[in-house]
Each structure stands twice: as C-alpha cells, then as structure tokens.
Amino acid sequence: MKSQALVPRSISAHANSVRRIQPSRWIVPVDVAELWRYRDLAWFFVLRDLKTRYRQTYLGASWAVLRPVMTIVVFSLIFGGLANITTDANVPYALWVTPAVLLFGYVSSALTGMTASLITNSQLITKVYFPRLYVPISPGLTPIADFILGLLVLLGLFAYFHRAPSWHIIFLPAFLLLAVLIVTGVGLWLSAYTARYRDMVVGVPFLVQVWQYATPVIYPVSLVPQRYHWLLDLNPLTAVATGFRWCLLGLPIGSPLGLATSVCIGVGATASGLFVFRRTERLMVDML
C-alpha cells in the first residue's frame, strides 16, 4: 500500500504484535520476555531505594555498618559473655556470630521492604502498567548492598583477631543466592497477602525475630539435642547460616540433607510465591 510508506518504522515493527486484553485464567504465567524488556526498571527501582534509604540521615550509609556492629556487640556481651554460649569452634564468639548476624540483617530488611512494597508503591500500581513483579522483587535485592557493606565489619573483626577468612569464601555468592531465593519466596507470599490485609506490615518484624531464634544464629547447632536436629534442618535458613560460617570462617558445613532441603524449600517458595503473586496481581488495583 502506498500510505504505508508514511508510517514511521517503529510502528510497523510493533504492529504485528497484537495483545489480547482479557480476564486472566487461573494460572497466570510469568511473562519472562516482558520482564526482560523492563529489566532497566528493576535497576532504577533498586537505585531509587538505595538513594532514598539513607537520605537525610546524619550518618548516611554508615548505618549499614553500624547496625551489624551494634548487634554483634550486644550479642557478644549477652550471649557470648553473660550466657557464656560455647561454640566449640576455635573462633572468638564475636567473629563466630557475625556471618549469621549479617544474614539476618539482610533477611530482616528484605522481608520488611517486600511486605510493604505494594503499599509504598500503590501510587504507581494504580496509575501505570509495568510488570508488577518488580515491585516486591526490587526491595528484596536492595539490602544486598547493605550486606556487602556489612562484610567490612567482618574484615575488621578478622584484622582485630589476627585471622584470615577461609578460601571457601569463593562460595559465598552461592549461599547468598540461596538466601535471596528463600527470602524472595517468602516475601512474594507476604506481599501478595498484604495487598488484601495489612497485618503482615506489623507482623513481619516479629516474624523475623522468631525466625532468627529458630535459626542457629546466636547458638551453635551442637547446643541443640541431636533428636531435634531434623527440626533445624527443616528451617531453610539453617543451611544458609551454617554455609556462611563455612565460607567465611572455614567451620564444618552442615548436613547435606539440610542443604538439600533448604534449596528445595527456596525453589518451592519462590515458585509458589510467583504463582500466588501473579494470581493476586489482577485484583491488586482494586484492593490497594
């Protein structure tokens, strides 16, 4: 046709793709191609959260270091000092507790952020279309920056105690990925639930605290009677906490069964979380 020459090229490029807008079915598949097209958005969400997080605080990003330092000091004084928890590892308590403290620093920030994410971004969700998955996923990624800064504390402690990290440290990203997977799964459930009921915005800090006590953070696995170890292994973060200590301190890695369980739970939680979130997505705008 003659008139076609007048149409700008970008139009004809898209014109073939006809999208049907209709009520979604029971299972809403994750649109991977779309997530890829919008990948820059995930980055700008993370950047926004990073930049706004410590804006107008006097101490700024040093909070990322200060928070674990204070936790470590308190834990060392109370549990390592007063309660005299022995770790049966040839490692000072302060150093021993640090990897797990950093882990829970991440878990706590990520879960809090993910749970509240739909509410804090409700202005966006009701006004513009974009892949909503990035709303809860981004605040799950942002605190990784804090985690990395927190590793400075660990370096400081290594220097203070005249020790060096284990070569296992090269496996740290793998265990961090596992932590992200588990937290993302749980966070997706929580954020989908929060679209309807706001309870978890209040409940998450408490939930994280309980989770921390159910994980060998302040006490070693050896302090728990053998017959309860299966319970610890059911907690997917046990394997991550033990794994962190293996990577950073060279302590024995936990049971392979626990690690396998952890990976399965992580994958299962994320898969089911994606499913639940996608189901909720279509009604989200009306509920927010």
Partner: peptide, 8 residues
C-alpha cells in the same frame, strides 16, 4: 468479561 485486541 470480554476482551480487547491491542496492536502495538
């Protein structure tokens, strides 16, 4: 219910 087809 119903649908809309959107090209582009």
């Amino acid at each position: 219910t119903g649908y809309a087809d959107v090209a582009g």
